[in-house]
């Protein structure tokens, strides 16, 4: 039956779009973990802050200019917040991973509460820029244009991150830090500046993802946990700290969340964590995880 084929095509396409959105919101988490060894559990709350920035700045029927302005504000706020967070985590550098993760969990609780005080507990929905509003016909059904745009955004982001990490001096420094932190500081690079910069970039990626994601997921209390869990699943499936892993993990989870749910509706609530458990059983460190483990 052609309509079944068409709806499967829609599911595949939608999985791709959700996958790239997941990549944008997970890449900052994996970057900070790979570079700093900090599992930032405030990532979801920071994403939500970005989503609220998007809602606040964009208003109804936003233009391109307003959309870009929202992205800019989110990026600046993210850089500053990331720098601050890196200073907060700094004193705990010698402590176990668990302590740092718990500190960020505490920060997440506080930030979520502050957001609820500032923006209220109502559900906020955000319109995409008017040029991207509406739907087009794809495979016999309508499909929202903004979601097609997200595929482009995710692809572009993946390329940019790849180029920065693989082709620039900053990237070389990042790779060197991942490989051997002590050596990098021994040759005279100021580790603290690198820390603050990377933390800032990672957190800014979360706030920017919040603006990109807002027209799809909106902004509301509780979204922070939903996003945190999704991002954690993505980066763990891909292998913590691996950018390539985050991309593959995001695309995989995107398909699981749409195609998996439409194929097995009665097991819909189990597919996400089922997939995570399966991957970890087969590859205990994720698809692209480093062979040597880090100790908590």
């Amino acid at each position: 039956m052609p309509s079944i084929l068409a709806s499967n095509l829609t599911s595949l396409l939608n999985g791709l779009s959700i996958g790239f959105l997941l990549f944008t919101l997970a890449v900052g988490l994996t970057l900070v973990f790979g570079m700093m060894d900090v599992l930032n559990l405030a990532h979801g709350a920071i994403y939500l802050a970005g989503a609220y920035i998007g809602w606040y700045v964009m208003g109804a029927d936003p233009t391109w200019t307003v959309f870009l302005a929202a992205l800019g504000v989110a990026a600046v706020v993210g850089l500053l917040a990331g720098g601050a967070l890196s200073l907060l985590v700094q004193p705990l550098a010698s402590r176990p991973h668990l302590d740092q993760a718990l500190l960020t969990l505490g920060v997440a609780l506080i930030l979520a509460e502050l957001l609820s005080m500032a923006f209220g507990d109502d559900v906020r929905s955000v319109s995409p820029p008017s040029a991207l509003a509406g739907s087009v016909d794809v495979a016999g059904g309508s499909y929202p244009i903004y979601r097609l745009f997200l595929i482009g955004v995710g692809l572009a982001l993946a390329v940019v991150v790849y180029l920065v990490v693989e082709r620039t001096t900053v990237g070389a420094l990042i790779r060197a830090t991942v490989a051997d932190r002590d050596m990098v500081s021994a040759v005279g690079v100021d580790n603290r500046k690198v820390r603050i910069a990377v933390f800032g970039a990672g957190v800014a990626l979360a706030t920017v993802a919040g603006v990109f994601g807002a027209p799809v997921y909106g902004a509301r209390p509780g979204l922070d946990w939903t996003i945190l869990i999704l991002a954690l699943v993505v980066v763990v499936v891909g292998g913590l700290g691996s950018i390539k892993g985050a991309l593959v993990g995001a695309l995989l989870i995107g398909q699981v969340e749409t195609f998996g749910r439409s194929l097995f509706p009665e097991f819909a609530s189990f597919v996400l964590f089922g997939a995570l458990a399966l991957v970890l059983i087969a590859r205990p460190r994720g698809l692209f995880g480093a062979p040597t483990g880090v100790k908590v």
């Binding site: 599992l39 991973h97 993760a101 869990i229 954690l232 699943v233 763990v236 913590l240 189990f270 996400l272 964590f273 089922g274 995570l276 458990a277 970890l280 205990p284 460190r285 994720g286 995880g289 483990g293 880090v294 100790k295 908590v296």
Partner: peptide
């Protein structure tokens, strides 16, 4: 072990 144990137990718990 470590973070992966944390995530695997989270997954089992959520299931």
């Amino acid at each position: 072990g470590g973070i992966f144990f944390l995530m695997l137990t989270l997954a089992i718990g959520e299931v």
